[in-house]
Amino acid sequence: MDEFELRGALRGTVETATPPPAMHAGAVLAEAKAAQQVRRARIAGAGSAVAVALIAVGAVFLPGMGGTDQAPGPINAATGGTSSPRPTSRTSSPSRPADPAAARSSALLADLLDAVPDGYNATNVNIMLPNGHNAFSHGSELLDSGARDYWATAPIGKSGRWGGVEAHVVDGAARDLCAVVKDVISHGGANCAVADVGSKAVVLVNDRVQQWVAHRHDNGVVVVIGQRTDLGNDLPPLGQRPLTVDDMTRFATKSDIARK
């Protein structure tokens, strides 16, 4: 298939697809006006909104500050809405899907949860990020470099404060390790340096709120693990990083993870 054939094929694809009924202009206008009102209100009352949010967050997490680590219920950081608490256990791992790619990323999520230190809650607490996605998730996709990236993410909490951990298994990564790390994270990565942790050669990325460790295994697979002390939403951030560099290196260099 060349460029001309693709051009024709794209047109054919749209022409033969059956679109839903035309979108309603009035409905979109109403959404746009509502969004603008919300935005104006946010800008006008930014100071008081912060105070209200702090009070709301305090109300949600007050029980957690009493020493229990029970997960909060679903929290939509975008809207500030919450639903009833959903107690879960850290030992609960995601069900293993039948699809090989989904199974591999699901297994990675289970490995990631195993790496979380005791004392932290790392269950499926269904915390929603500002973009509406669940922070507890896994998946796979092709990177721009052509390598296949299996990834898993989980929010982790302690005493009502939340951060996150994330892992990637990159299959087919041909470039240097720092480039691979940059490929799988969106921001930062400039402070990437080769380091020897124990007898293992890794690269270490240290940014203000995030930290990454990556290691290339003998089979060429790169395992990357990251942590950050906040979730990028209104939830109170962790006071310190949950994992040590040794913990992260242990994870990144674990041969089982690279072979799965």
């Binding site: 699809d99 989904a102 998730s137 998946g139 996709e141 990834w151 993410t153 996150g164 994270i185």
Partner: peptide, 20 residues
């Protein structure tokens, strides 16, 4: 923006299996 993957990038789970 919405197509970015992962948690730190605030991205979405890939529903499509990809390897089939």
């Amino acid at each position: 923006d919405e197509a970015r993957r992962g948690f730190f990038r605030r991205e979405t789970v890939t529903e499509d299996p990809g390897d089939t």
